[in-house]
Design a protein around this nucleic acid. Structure first.
Lengths: 348, 348
DNA sequence: CTGAAAGCGCTTACAG
DNA sequence: CTGAAAGCGCTTACAG
């Protein structure tokens, strides 16, 4: 039914081996041979059968991306970035949205998808250092996205949580703010990013010669719009005074901003706000939200490259840990107080 | 290296054929045989090699989902729904975000992903009736998501655009609104949904004995927050009077709502708003947005089922066209005017 | 540079 | 119910 390499061989008059060489870009072929084989391929509309190739090579050309869900903007944008980088390397991506919770996250590691992919990029939220053994026992090449350290035993890509948070806070200090709320801390929390971002905030405050004030640190159950709105509503009720907010992610910032505006607080005149993640929508909020850009492109590229290295190098290879860079996107929510169009200034 | 069916046969003492029968749930096997084979499978940790199975069967167990992008909330939620329904049928989903524009959309049909999937769910925005021939020429089973009619020649799933829009408008009329803006029309537009939703709006208005007023119909370049904000800003500038807005999608509605609130217009007291899509975030906006729920779950299920039917039935099968249902989610933005918690009432 | 042949792991007629 | 064997389409030593 379908055209095979054998048909191409027959039509072109060359052997199967030669046809295979042409398909796989083998260098030592005389141009004329290559051309005649290519003509036969075009004429027949031949396409290599990937199942056969994979069976032979032991590779599928597909990598898995395990994330909690696809409907959270952060993960959707991450998945998009990973797909682009993977496509550039000739790989397809199979996304597995696993839901939240440690049980789901661990179960995904033994899911059946594992057997159709060459490797996995794994973004779990509940991993801890004690899981290193478990992760190493997975027999599929694996790269972890996240902030938990496994002491160099697992390939891992992290973002600049502390440095980014520090830069965001320093920016707020630089534009003259002194009582900066830290929004999104987690008490005794499994989410390592919260701790790291709080550390960056604290570093900036103390480096500026100010005293770190625990009264300015506030918790949020969930890092979503609703969480940001709820916390901010409570703080306004309590009559807390502040002139800036550093929210640990963008959706918290957007939720908080919304409540502030409802209450008649002007942004950035009365309160300046900076978020973290650089979600697409931060460009379109009113005012546009300043934020830390964790360079998802860089994260995606590092993840794909590290995974490929692991796939090709095997389990004996030493584990890599890569921390990606960041940039601070200064927009209206913390920018100079004037009426003008939104502008995204980038500072490293 | 890896465990094969041959190893299971050897360890269990049965033939390869019998092992295969057990793996594939063949009914006529005595329980004891089944058990002993299963024990060997468990003991060895055997997992079928999917490439081999696919090579043999001509199936991959993977379907493709072609969408413009993954960062638009609507498509992310659609992809999520499709993955869930596919998983329930034992299928994995390979998402291909193709970018916008007709060139990209057509190019995707000949993309190489096509050869690793058993079938494709295709959500293109720029298709027209003249593309039926092209779609039929694709040799991979295909289901189209969208509103363009191909006269029964291509499998297709559509949503209740007109009925949903009519219900939304009727609801606004029922709560006493008379000058209802239709936001998101497209002039001479390729996006069929805009036309269908406008038709539903018009039907409702005329059925109520009112005159359809073209001055209340407004265009939006893009169905995004920014588009909704821009149009609404202009209308306020122009001093147009209205007491309700039916926006053709949720992001338009959210953008418009934002601008209205900035201008001191109370929602729903002064202006009631209803959107379309039932995005997750409509539950969390302030006020929560009333919207038409196009039942993405139903769309996803219909798409997966129709695709499976096509994969199994071949190209001779008559084309199916399925229109899914909808529900109207009445929330605060158009609800009774009182101060209370958000509540999502569902009315069919 | 090229050809004939083995084998990746599975499923499925075919024969018993 | 079970076994021996063919073959899905490809790549790759091996021999020339």
């Amino acid at each position: 039914m379908s055209v095979t390499i054998r048909d191409v061989a027959r039509v072109s008059g060359f052997s199967i081996k030669t046809v295979s060489n042409v398909i796989n870009g083998h260098p030592q072929l005389r141009p004329e041979t290559r051309q005649r084989v290519q003509d036969a391929i075009d004429q027949l509309g031949y396409r290599p059968n990937l199942s056969a190739r994979n069976l032979r090579s032991g590779r599928s050309g597909v990598i898995g991306l395990i994330i909690p869900d696809l409907t959270t903007a952060y993960f959707a944008e991450l998945a998009d970035a990973v797909m682009r980088k993977a496509a550039a390397k000739g790989l397809a991506v199979l996304i597995e949205p696993i839901g939240s919770g440690r049980d789901n996250e661990l179960a995904a590691l033994s899911g059946k998808h594992r057997h159709m992919v060459d490797g996995i990029i794994y973004n779990a939220l509940t991993l801890n250092a004690g899981d290193a053994e478990l992760l190493r026992s997975v027999d599929t090449p694996l790269v972890v996205l996240g902030d938990t350290s496994f002491n160099g035993r697992v390939d891992r890509i992290t973002m600049a949580n502390t440095a980014g948070a520090r830069a965001a806070t320093e920016h707020l200090l630089a534009v003259g703010r002194r009582r900066i709320l830290a929004l999104g801390a987690h008490e005794g929390e499994i989410i390592a990013a919260a701790e790291l971002r709080l550390a960056g905030y604290r570093q900036a405050v103390e480096a500026a010669g100010l005293t770190f004030d625990p009264d300015l640190v506030h918790y949020a159950d969930s890092w979503h719009r609703r969480g940001g709105a709820a916390v901010m509503a409570k703080l306004l009720d309590d009559g807390l005074k502040f002139d800036a907010v550093f929210a640990f992610n963008d959706t918290l910032a957007l939720g908080a901003m919304r409540v502030l505006q409802e209450a008649g607080v002007r942004i950035p005149e009365d309160v300046a706000i900076v978020g973290f993640d650089d979600l697409d929508e931060t460009r379109y909020s009113l005012p546009a939200l300043s934020t830390v850009n964790p360079r998802r492109d860089e994260i995606a590229e590092a993840a794909v490259d590290t995974l490929l290295r692991r796939i090709e190098g095997g389990s004996e290879l030493e584990a890599h840990e890569i921390e990606t860079g960041f940039s601070l996107e200064i927009r209206q929510s913390s920018g100079p107080v004037l009426t003008g169009a939104a502008g995204a200034n980038t500072a490293a």
